[in-house]
Design a protein around this nucleic acid. Structure first.
Lengths: 218, 218
DNA sequence: TTATAAATACGTCAAATGTCGTATTGAAAA
DNA sequence: TTTTCAATACGACATTTGACGTATTTATAA
């Protein structure tokens, strides 16, 4: 028989705590030891009982947020695995959470089974990650952003097709070649690029590529 | 109904190709367009048919290895997803594969279902990764090693004035503005740029700026 | 069911860019 | 001293790009 996985949930929203608990209720070996409503609350409770395997940590919380809490926890109890469980997937949060020592990063809409497997993988010495988060970490590795030089991250939303086109643009290809690569009409490529320029508020290829890289869109 | 996923397998071991094919045979929407025995073989075959969704790429191969091949492929066909599929999980391979533009990194022992899901996730704009690989990428992000592998660096000599112009170019300025900034005639700016293109062996602004950055000229 | 969004595509026009050729001047190198 | 190179500059021409408007189809969300 497998031994239980002593789990802690930290979230300032009691409804979301309930939701996570329900997701995990399918799995007999998950044991919720306690829950906490913010980082400070967690620290208090954990100092009385640090016999914990894994913490599921929200980020946006009052008093002490999830990233600060993670840093403290991982410093004091490095054996405890911390998996971020949040609705936010912006670069800065991801990067800071990783820097703080998080062992995984999942989005709240995660399937129960995926969440469970993520916990197991993490305890087995891996890291749990949504594919979309994984991609962002790859991009961060390729193109290290300067977080100091980066205030409020604009939320620029490009469609997948627009990203395809932008990637091609970034290789220095012209419209004709991009069209050939993506099996499109050059007219469509131009239209996509037009839309990209509008969204990025730029007026030529070079600016588009630079802004896209800066915002880790490509 | 979902459309088929045009897939290519690259591996110098025909037995392993067979093994991968068998793993994917469970899934009706995976269509193996062709297989290749090394990077060079892949490039030849893909130049005749680049209507491909995803490439499963081994790393250790003769003639042209998987990382070099990935770099070439992603430069020419950035829309094609490349997932590394290898037995090696050392930091250097992972880091270099990511730098080369890989969209995922899975180990060969991967379960058929996991491999399939990884392909799907990647095509949906995510990244496929084993948990153990994911952890390594996190560690690389926390502690960035600079494996700045500069091989045979070409010796490109630009004049100081050309560098001036190139720097302006890299800011996304047009000829008129560059001329104003440097107190030149636009015609002169154009001539400088023409000479820069010749020296760098490129044919447009974007390529010039990228090559210049790569060679630390700006 | 009806909006809405995404992806596709065409046409037009002006502006910018890439590629030629040619030429003058001054400074540095042979 | 002669030659070469760097920097400046003009003209011409074809191609590419950027900025409009418009329109159809499909999938998804309200």
């Amino acid at each position: 028989m497998e031994k239980v996985i002593k789990t802690v949930i930290v979230d300032d929203n009691t409804f979301l705590i309930k939701a996570i608990q329900e997701k995990l209720s399918f799995f007999d070996d998950i044991q919720i030891k306690f829950t906490a409503l913010d980082g400070s609350d967690l620290l208090t409770k954990i100092s009385n009982n640090h016999n914990i395997d894994v913490i599921l940590m929200d980020i946006d919380m009052p008093i002490l947020n999830g990233i600060e809490a993670t840093e403290i926890i991982k410093n004091k109890y490095p054996h405890i695995k911390v998996i971020m469980l949040t609705v936010f997937d912006n670069d800065e949060n991801i990067f800071n959470a990783i820097k703080a020592g998080a062992d995984g990063y999942l989005l709240k809409e995660v399937e129960p089974k995926t969440l469970y497997e993520g916990i197991i993988d993490t305890l087995n010495g891996g890291a749990a990650m949504n594919p979309s988060i994984a991609l962002k970490t790859l991009k961060l590795l390729r193109n290290p952003i300067d977080l100091d030089n980066k205030k409020e991250e604009e939320i620029i939303k490009l469609t997948t097709r627009e990203v395809d086109v932008l990637e091609q643009l970034s290789k220095g290809l012209n419209y004709i070649n991009i069209a050939e690569n993506l099996f499109l009409s050059p007219a469509t490529v131009r239209k996509h690029i037009e839309n990209i320029y509008t969204k990025l508020q730029v007026h030529n290829k070079l600016e588009a590529v630079q802004k896209a890289k800066k915002n880790n869109l490509i």
